[in-house]
């Protein structure tokens, strides 16, 4: 479904990603871990072209999105993204946040989008917040709304960029619960996170990145008990 070939990305002279190759199939739950500055967020942001790769190709269902002729807006409508800082639209109510993209892109009528928004809000346990503004929500609530906003476009894959890193510890659980539920209904997910418990339970594959390379790519059982790369053992011993 997603195929990354020889991807490199530099910011000025600094090469963040170095010749990355990666295949992700439908239904996989890929968790990317690694130290700060290892390039994991940049890799994720390249997948929907929020960062423009310096070289290499990214194929989504066979279509090269680095090709200038590719309409990236159509590709992005099938890829939801959740950000570390939520990035809810502060001037819109929760419902408006959720319905804006489906309505503006012509995917749903306003009525249908509102119905869908309410269904999704019920699924994450926040139907009573439908008419609130983001400023009145807690961090965990904001992130759950942000997930719903992405889901409202019925994406084929969800990208999570450190979704719990900006949250107070007691709010991490409610966001991870929603993500686990998504994993259970077999959503394709790519998650950059420091939550090792989530990686262990929900992932089908765990990638370890350092200095712009993918150093380990293994199922969680192997990744956490018997990784091939000594750098991974070192990393795990520091954080677990």
């Amino acid at each position: 479904m997603i195929s990354v070939k020889n991807l490199s990305k530099s910011f000025g002279d600094f090469e963040v990603l170095k010749n990355i190759d990666l295949e992700i199939k439908k239904g996989e739950k890929v968790v990317i871990v690694g130290p700060s500055g290892s390039g994991k967020s940049t890799l994720l942001r390249c997948l929907n072209l929020l960062e423009k790769p310096t070289s290499g190709n990214i194929y989504i269902d066979g279509m090269d999105i680095t090709d200038k002729k590719c309409n990236i807006n159509h590709v992005r409508r099938r890829m939801g993204m959740v950000f570390q800082n939520f990035n809810l639209f502060p001037h819109k109510t929760v419902t408006e946040n959720i319905t804006m993209a489906p309505v503006l892109t012509g995917k749903l009528t306003k009525e249908d989008a509102q119905k869908r928004a309410l269904q999704l809000l019920e699924r994450v346990g926040l139907p009573e917040k439908a008419l609130s503004y983001p400023a009145s929500l807690s961090g965990g609530q904001k992130q759950r709304i942000a997930i719903v906003r992405a889901l409202a476009m019925d994406p084929d894959v969800m990208l999570f960029d450190e979704p719990t890193s900006a949250l107070d510890p007691e709010m991490v659980g409610e966001v991870l619960a929603v993500m686990r539920e998504l994993a259970e209904i077999n959503m394709t997910m790519i998650v950059v996170t420091h939550e090792m418990a989530f990686a262990r339970e929900a992932a089908t594959r765990v990638l370890f990145m350092d200095e712009g390379h993918i150093l380990e790519d293994a199922p969680p059982e192997k990744f956490f008990t018997n990784p091939d790369n000594p750098r991974v053992k070192d990393f795990l011993s520091k954080i677990l």
Binding site: R76, R78, M79, N85, M100
Partner: peptide, 25 residues
């Protein structure tokens, strides 16, 4: 915040839609 633009674009809105409905208000 630049994140507002990124959120709009990541949902598949065009740059004009993002400007009109998210940034300018």
């Amino acid at each position: 915040d630049i994140g507002q633009t990124e959120a709009g674009r990541s949902l598949g809105l065009t740059s004009a839609q993002t400007l009109r409905h998210i940034i300018l208000p």
